[in-house]
Simulated scan of single mutants.
Amino acid sequence: MKNGLALFFGAFAVLALSTGAVLYSAHKQLGSLTQYKDPVEETLYPAPLTGLADQGRAVYQDLGCVSCHTQQVRRDGFGGDTTRQWGTRQSVARDYIREKTVFLGSSRIGPDLRNVAARAYADEAYLYTILYAPHAVAPGTNMPSYDFLFDVHPIRPGQASPHALKLTGKAAPAPGYEVVPTHRARALVAYLRSLNDAYEYPEAKPFVADAKKEEGK
C-alpha cells in the first residue's frame, strides 16, 4: 500500500490524457468544420435557422420530440434509411454545424425527421393535422395528439380564420367551431418545414474504391 498514492495518480493521469486525446482529436476533426461554399452558386451551406423556424426548434426541444424521432440518415449498408426515403444521402457532420442544439436522437418510435420537408406529402396541412389529430392522416400511429398547440373556438360571423385546419370525420370540430394553430404550432411546423438536407457535400458522396488499387493488391 506504500505505492497506493502513486498508482492512483498514475491511473488518473492515464485516464485524463486518454480522455483529452479523444476530445482533442474530435475537436480537430469536427470543430474546425465551416460552411461549404458552392463553387458555382457561391452560396454557403448549410444556412442557419432564422425567424419562426428557429423558434420552432425550441418548441421541438421543449416537447421532447427527440425521444421518438431521430435526425440522422444512415448511409447504405448501415440501415435502410434511404430505401425508406428518409433522405437521398447519408447525414454528415457538416449538416449540423449551424444548429444551436443537435437532435440526433437514438430511438425511432416514429420516422426519422431529418428530411421531412423533402417528402411530398408532408406539407403544412399534413403536419398541422398529424400534430392535432394523428390518426386522421396516419391510422394506427402511436403518436400522441398535441392538441394543446391549437385553439378551438366558435367561428365569429364573417370572421373565420384563414389558418383554420380543414378537418373531416372524427377529427372535425363541432359545428360552428374551428381549430386554429397557435404561435407555437406555427413555429414548430416552420421548423419541420426547414428540415431538408438537399445539398450534397463532397464528404457525403458514397465511397468508391479505386479499381486500379484493388487490382494491384
Rank of each mutant, 00 (worst) to 15 (best):
I109G: 09
G110C: 08
G80A: 14
A117W: 06
G87F: 01
A136F: 05
Y96T: 04
R114M: 11
R84P: 03
P134L: 14
G87C: 05
T101W: 09
A120C: 07
D123F: 09
S91A: 08
A125D: 04
R94N: 03
A120V: 10
R94A: 02
A138V: 05
G110H: 07
D95M: 07
A122S: 09
T82K: 11
I109A: 12
A93Y: 05
L127G: 07
Y132M: 06
G87I: 00
P139A: 03
I130E: 01
A125H: 04
R98D: 09
Y96W: 00
T82G: 01
G110S: 12
V92E: 07
A122T: 06
Y121T: 03
A122E: 08
G105E: 10
V137R: 15
G80I: 10
P139K: 01
G80S: 15
G80P: 07
Q90R: 12
V137W: 03
T88M: 02
I109H: 08
V137A: 15
G87H: 00
L127Y: 01
V92K: 03
A120Q: 07
S106F: 06
L131Q: 04
G80K: 15
R98N: 14
S91R: 00
D95V: 12
A136Q: 06
A118D: 15
S91N: 04
R94L: 02
A125Q: 13
T88S: 11
A93Q: 11
L113R: 10
V102D: 08
G105C: 11
G80R: 14
T129A: 04
W86D: 03
A93M: 08
Q90G: 13
E99R: 02
A133K: 06
A122N: 11
P134C: 14
K100D: 15
D95T: 01
R84N: 09
R98T: 15
A138R: 08
L131D: 12
T129W: 00
Y132D: 01
T129C: 00
T101A: 15
R114H: 04
A118L: 15
F103Y: 10
I97Y: 14
I130C: 08
R114E: 04
R89L: 13
Q85Y: 00
D112I: 14
T88R: 05
T82A: 13
G80T: 10
T101N: 13
R119I: 15
F103V: 10
T101M: 15
T129E: 01
Y126S: 10
R84D: 11
Q85C: 02
Y121P: 00
R89A: 14
L113G: 12
Y128F: 12
A120D: 12
T82S: 07
T82W: 00
T88Q: 09
A117H: 06
V92P: 07
G105N: 09
R119V: 13
R94V: 00
L131H: 06
D112R: 08
A122Q: 07
P111R: 12
V137T: 14
